[in-house]
Design a protein around this nucleic acid. Sequence first.
DNA 1: GGGACCTTTGT
DNA 2: CAAAGGTCC
Length: 454
Amino acid sequence: MPKRNIIWFRRDLRISDHPALLEAIQTSDEIIALFILDSKLIQHSGSKRLAYLAASLRALDESLNNKLHVMVGEQVEVLQELMLRYGATSVHISTEYEPYGARRDERVEAAGIPLVRTGSPYAVAPGRVVKASDATPYKVYTPFYRAWRVHGWRKPAAKPKTINAITPKDTDRNFPDWKLPQGLSITPAGEKAALARWKIFQKNGLNNYNEGRNLAGIDGTSKLSAHLKWGEIHPRTLLAELGEDKDHDTFRKEIAWREFYADVLFNNPHTEKEYYAPRFAQMRYDAPGEKFEAWKSGKTGYPFVDAAMRQIVQEGWMHNRTRMVVASFLVKDLHLEWQLGADFFMEHLVDFDVASNAHGWQWTAGSGTDASPYYRVFNPIEQGKRFDADGAYTRKYVPELAHLSAGTIHEPWLHPDGYTHGYSQPIVDHATERLESLARLHEIKADKPQDPRA
DNA sequence: GGGACCTTTGT
DNA sequence: CAAAGGTCC
């Protein structure tokens, strides 16, 4: 009887630089390539992310010469059935660290499935970078970054020369047919698309990254987030080709932010949903109502905010600069809790990553690690003028403002024709709400005596 | 333990 | 150039 291993793909949908796949191959005669559709994750994913996953599974299957099993059902049952049927002795995985995935794997293991963990979605696994002084985790990014670099990471793993995989039965080829709703568009999925995008970014964006990454209207960011989220490319593959100049270092720092937030969530799993700084739970917030609806539908009357909100709904992706702008607007202009925005992002983002999302939001809200200082409130108009100076980004997503030029598109109230194409009036006055936000923050200042009833 | 330091700013 | 307060070494 040949020795057989299962390779259970989850968020590592690639065959290059894949240590767990290599390990599964090297310790067996044949592998069983498997993906299990997880009803819980499907429930929490919007149509765009599901369409992306469907495409990514097709791409992975192609790389595996159509040998991918796509199964529906409870993980333990599916794994037990396949192990029995094929006489497989172990299940190889890339280690997962975020709360849901880590708990799932523990549960599977507790049910008697022999999991073999090799590698992770990170260059340095969460929990590995700690302070030299007392071996506790970092809470501030920059010292983490320095220690992360000193820690270092392995070279990319080799692409397997041959993959000897069992041919699935037809009934085990349950590829989902999740379609993208009409009128929407998402980025191409799969390992080939990821590697192609990386090449394009290296050629066109990387060498001006320090400046270009902030400009919403140009293709200045890597746009690798969805590929990284689904593991179609490993961060090590990117890091291996970076140099030491300013632009390359800035990009390396963005990769390190992803690793920092994975580490913070690993060490503080409750911060997926709760305030990292607990006193922010005591702040006065407004209840979500009409203004929240306006934010979600891109009708706040603030052009840069509305452009970004329409971008995420149409494309499942939002420029990083505008992620901060719309987050600041939700929390500090509308006085709503960050979790409302984070949940909306979870529904729409193709690249949704629980750690980066929760802590990106908390940074803006002021409640996170190394958070934005409380007095720092983004000005949505000034941000638009600075980072979408010619108005191209806003014009693209807000057709009601397309007739306005660079000079007035971020302030339609300055133009006599500003509202002639149906654009919304501002739902709040930024200057007023900024002061309101500062007042509410003052109420929870650390040096204020706590309410004894609290 | 004291001093340097801290992604992404506003006016 | 002003704006806390915590973290790091």
